[in-house]
Simulated scan of single mutants.
Amino acid sequence: MLRWRGLDEIPPDWGRCVLTIGVFDGVHRGHAQLIDRAVAAARRRDLPSVLMTFDPHPMEVVRPGSHPAQLTTLTRRAELVEQLGVDVFCVMPFTHEFMKLTPERYAHDLLVERLHVAEVVVGDNFTFGKKAAGTVPMLRDLGARFGFAVDGVALASQDDVTFSATYIRSCVEAGDMAAAEEALGRPHRVEGVVVHGDGRGRGLGFPTANIAPPVHSAIPADGVYAARFSVLGEGPELGPSAMAAVSVGTNPTFEGRDRTVEAYVLDADVDLYGQHVAVDFVERLRGMEKFDSVESLIAQMHRDADRTRELFADRS
């Protein structure tokens, strides 16, 4: 899959394409339906499919400080859409200048002059251009004027729940990993680099990987979770079925203040410092608790590890 960062990386001899546009944070089941539609349209037309997303999140530019919790990194987003058959992953820098484009200039300058779109596939709630004034009906009118087709796709839903990044963020924030997985089509993932913590876990017999996620990452509610654990890129080989009991919170038993994500990888004692890792959250085992003694905490950590093994045995 080709990856472009901005319009300057579009080849000068670039031909026509089928384009789908959106933030696509999470690449959830609703996004997958939209992307499948765009990929199918591209194949019918014998044209490449292009997915355009934005960085930073548009809300951070429109209203600084309002960046929503991020469900997927750009790298992860690219991996997921490639699996769905997208040919080109285009990251558009969302700047103040870009934000000020009128819907007409957005369609003519971006879609026609630069990307040469034959068809645009978007969700039926898609808006574009200055002050989000452009709508799908307006895009159809502009398409008729400039020579491209528009397919507005209804939002995917199930049991009266519309799949959206906002809904999934609320599930993650509540610690409802089953609902998040249902909407995403896979477990919610948090990535990050393993950094040095206070070393307390090893002293308790549970060496943990202290993970520093990127800014704005969607972190589940405080508690202890069963999760899959993997090392991204080159690093210790843990295999595809590595299990972890993951603590999210401030470690109240030790009067902690900083909120951390600490993963105890079951049946593996390897040096993970500096590694880029991923935690796929599967189920919340319990809330965060303050224990009266270290012995009580250790006993509960054993129970958490045992419950994690049982849970994955049931899922296999």
Rank of each mutant, 00 (worst) to 15 (best):
G6A: 06
P12C: 15
W14L: 02
C17R: 13
V18S: 00
L19G: 01
G22K: 10
G26W: 13
G26K: 11
H28M: 08
G30W: 09
H31M: 05
I35R: 13
A41F: 00
P48D: 11
L51C: 11
M52W: 08
P56V: 04
P56D: 03
P58L: 14
P64A: 13
P68K: 06
P68N: 10
T73E: 10
R77Q: 15
L80D: 01
Q83F: 03
G85T: 08
C90P: 08
C90S: 12
F94K: 01
K100W: 03
Y106C: 06
L111N: 07
V112D: 02
A118K: 00
A118Q: 14
V121L: 00
V122T: 08
T127I: 05
A133H: 07
P137C: 08
R140P: 04
F146R: 01
A149V: 03
D151T: 14
D151K: 09
G152R: 14
V153S: 10
A154Y: 06
A165E: 07
Y167G: 03
Y167K: 15
A180M: 09
E181I: 04
A183F: 11
L184G: 07
P187M: 14
P187Q: 13
V190H: 09
D198A: 07
G199Q: 14
R200H: 00
R200Q: 10
G203D: 06
P207A: 04
T208S: 07
T208M: 07
A209H: 11
A212T: 01
A212L: 15
H216W: 13
H216G: 07
V224Y: 03
V231K: 10
L232T: 05
G233P: 04
G239V: 05
A242S: 06
A245L: 01
S247V: 00
V248E: 02
D258H: 13
D258F: 02
R259H: 04
E262S: 02
E262F: 05
A263D: 09
A263S: 14
Y264F: 15
V265C: 09
Y273F: 10
G274W: 00
H276S: 09
A278F: 02
A278V: 05
V279R: 10
D280F: 11
F281D: 05
R286C: 12
M288N: 00
M288W: 01
K290T: 11
F291I: 08
V294G: 05
E295C: 07
E295S: 14
M301V: 04
M301N: 06
M301R: 06
M301I: 12
R303D: 14
R303S: 12
D306V: 09
D306E: 15
R307K: 15
R309M: 03
R309T: 01
L311T: 12
L311E: 06
F312H: 11
